[in-house]
């Protein structure tokens, strides 16, 4: 692998993302809402300190669950399909580059752009919290940001997989939006419906919910902030009793699997394609 090629492509991808109006819109929405939530949570708490941070963190988790998957899925879905539709991908592959370099360069560039977006959102909200003396545990805040970034990478991998399977950007973005709906809304509804009709045990319900990376993020973030999952009800209590602090490793492994496996599948699909 040629690192110069990968870095050149990553830089271009980052530059393109920063020119992409949808990406800018999502970033602006994320930054604006993070800022508003931080301010309102602290104002509503009436006092600074951990109570303010817990409230802000809970609000941020919900914001992240809505916006970050949408942003990462759509930029990922556009990546390969848009270039193929424009014809630029074929021209790129006609250069002395390999497909693994093109894939890695694009993924790295998009990952950097998501890091910039997440960093900006959390950074500005963090400054507000710090000024208001409501940052609580800085480590917990940084941990939440780190988990958010991992979630964005997982959703990016899924988006790139959709892109590798589509020839048209419109179809890929449609697929990305459908998956966003499925992860954010249909996942919860489906889980509730399945639990009721199949009479699932608490353990089965826990593992079924962990198939959704958004649930993994949510549980991991709550565990970081509260040190327990009791507020999630029976499934949370069961998880704490059964796995205890091993849950942190389980959550990390699941998130890593959601990042790596779709990315590998996307690369395998891209590598096999012979229709450029």
């Amino acid at each position: 692998m040629n690192i110069t090629v990968i870095w050149t492509l990553a830089q271009k991808e980052l530059r393109d993302a920063l020119r992409n109006r949808w990406f800018l819109l999502y970033t602006a929405a994320f930054v604006g809402l993070s800022l508003a939530l931080s301010y309102m949570s602290l104002a509503g708490a009436g006092i600074a300190g951990f109570a303010g941070f817990g409230r802000t963190a809970a609000s941020l988790i919900n914001l992240v669950l809505l916006i970050i998957p949408l942003m990462a899925l759509t930029v990922g879905a556009q990546s390969l399909a848009h270039e193929q539709e424009q014809g630029t991908l074929a021209y790129l592959l006609a250069q002395p580059v390999t497909r693994v370099e093109v894939f890695a360069g694009k993924y790295l560039g998009l990952a950097m752009s998501l890091l910039a977006s997440v960093g900006l959102g959390f950074g500005i909200a963090g400054v507000v919290l710090a000024i208001s003396d409501g940052a609580g545990s800085p480590a917990a805040y940084v941990g939440l940001m780190g988990r958010t970034y991992l979630l964005s990478l997982a959703m990016l991998s899924v988006g790139v997989l959709v892109s590798a399977m589509s020839k048209r950007a419109g179809v890929a973005i449609g697929g990305g939006l459908f998956l966003w709906l499925a992860f954010v809304f249909l996942g919860d509804l489906g889980l509730m419906g399945t639990a009721l009709t199949m009479r699932l045990s608490v353990g089965q319900l826990l593992w079924l919910s962990l198939l959704n990376p958004l649930q993994v993020f949510k549980m991991a973030a709550i565990l970081d902030i509260n040190a327990t999952l009791d507020l999630l009800g029976p499934a949370g209590i069961y998880a704490m009793q059964e796995y205890g602090q091993r849950l942190r490793i389980i959550f990390l492994a699941l998130m890593a699997a959601w990042i790596v496996l779709p990315a590998l599948a996307a690369y395998a699909r891209f590598q096999r394609r012979g229709d450029f």
Binding site: G87, T88, A90, Y91, A94, Q95, P96, V97
Partner: peptide, 13 residues
């Protein structure tokens, strides 16, 4: 491809 310079029919820039 290192030995080839390619000019495509439809310019995709």
């Amino acid at each position: 491809r290192q030995r080839i310079g390619y000019v495509p029919q439809e310019l995709a820039f």
